[in-house]
């Protein structure tokens, strides 16, 4: 007896608004996403050993410049990617929060290294067990310290996310 072939049920999607507007808004998001992903201005919030790999990834042969993410901006007002490089201790936490809050939208946060991701192996009274306890994080880079290739992979993943993100620029819907 032949069984009926398995089918994937198809449900009609809910229309989320005027289809012409959606098309235009999606194209606008793609354009803005493309521009934003290839012109990241990192704020290197550098604290510890990961700084060595941060210096290495900014120089030859790894070079973040070819991803558009090389020019650091040391003012939070002028940067959009907060790279928290190294351990953040409880003493440093207020400074991190202040810098994060001074940055304008859109902003992304990269937790660079094991200490920024989860506290690393410093699980004690002094270190914050991961900066996501204090500020929201977009991308976590594992490693102690991460190899430069890992950092570049993280930047590329972040760029893919930015490209597909919703970018409201004129109002909070568009």
């Amino acid at each position: 007896m032949a069984t009926a072939p398995a089918t994937i049920p198809i449900y009609p999607t809910e229309k989320a608004g005027h289809s012409g507007f959606e098309y235009f808004s999606t194209r606008k998001d793609e354009l803005v996403g493309w521009a934003r992903k290839f012109s990241l201005f990192p704020y290197p919030f550098v604290t510890a050993c990961c700084a060595m790999e941060f210096m290495a990834v900014s120089s030859t042969p790894y070079d973040t410049d070819r991803f558009g993410a090389a020019l650091p901006r040391f003012s939070p007002r002028q940067s959009d990617l907060l790279m928290v490089v190294g351990t953040v201790t409880h003493k440093q936490a207020p400074i991190l929060l202040k810098v994060y809050e001074q940055m304008c939208e859109p902003k992304w946060v990269m937790a660079f290294g094991a200490c920024a991701t989860s506290g690393g192996f410093y699980q004690n009274y002094a270190a914050v067990a991961g900066i996501d306890k204090i500020i929201p994080v977009d991308i976590y880079v594992p490693g102690c310290p991460p190899r430069p290739e890992t950092v570049i992979d993280a930047i590329m993943k972040l760029q893919a996310r930015i490209a597909g993100d919703h970018h409201p620029i004129l109002t909070d819907k568009f």
């Binding site: 003493k91 440093q92 192996f121 410093y122 004690n124 009274y125 002094a126």
Partner: peptide, 11 residues
């Protein structure tokens, strides 16, 4: 200083 005090001696 002390912004990177990670508790080495206690660890």
């Amino acid at each position: 200083c002390g912004y990177l005090h990670r508790g080495f001696e206690k660890e």
